[in-house]
Design a binder for these strands. Structure first.
Lengths: 121, 121
DNA sequence: GAAAGAAATAGAATAATTCTAAAATCATTA
DNA sequence: TAATGATTTTAGAATTATTCTATTTCTTTC
């Protein structure tokens, strides 16, 4: 656990949004101006592999990262692009029942309108 | 519907795998050597927007495309990387029940071992 | 405090995708 | 059929996200 890794993890933990590597790099630079982009990626990859953070790919953009370590799912608002975490604890078992095989893990992004955007319609 | 678009759609329809833009480009070139990569992307994007084909993003690699128009889900084998379609018709309703909101659509990739790889373990 | 190993840095390299400008194709109307 | 305008394709440059590489800086241990 280097200072850089600590910084990056801190940034992710404190953010309620899911950040791109670029955003993390920018925020990290504010606190540690010498940090390099490769360091950000190195650490994001390492922590992702270790399961400490989570990488999520969304259509039309860079990968996002979040510090939430518990498995969880995602709501994506197609109107404003906001990405929210949601926990569907029963889903894994449900999926295993449906495919008749053990599920290692899964990635789920649900497209829906966020409450704010729904109200505007 | 240009000749190029027809060709690309044909390639996708006839493939049982999910192809990358690169693979589609290669296959298209065999039939129409003058076709350009940009044309492949133009058409893939257009057809994806129109809902005729489906783009799917998988960790660590290029986007894949498939012609299957019905909504469906994906099984990804973490061992050999094989990506298979699966239909879970009840899931959408199940999700709507759980999030208490209408679900526009959703993307699901289930990580599991394919039968072949499971046998080898 | 020197040596060894691990991680960080800077910048080049790669891969996937998009953009741009010119040429080709197509459909429509004169 | 010729002219017109719109759309699409083409080729290659440009961009974006990410990884790689070689060198430097930190840590840790002796």
């Amino acid at each position: 656990m280097t200072r850089q890794r600590e910084l990056i993890l801190g940034i992710l933990s404190q953010s309620d949004r899911h950040l791109t590597a670029d955003e993390i790099f920018f925020l990290a630079k504010l606190k540690m101006p010498t940090i390099a982009m490769a360091t950000v990626y190195n650490n994001l990859n390492a922590m992702n592999e270790a399961g400490v953070i989570h990488r999520i790919r969304v259509d039309g953009g860079a990968d996002r990262f979040s510090a939430v370590s518990e498995p969880h799912d995602h709501l994506l608002c197609d109107e404003c692009g906001k990405l929210t975490d949601i926990r569907l604890p029963k889903l894994k078992v449900e999926l295993e029942k449906q495919i008749h095989s053990p599920v290692d893990s899964y990635d789920l992004v649900i497209h829906t309108l966020c409450p704010a955007c729904r109200r505007k319609k």
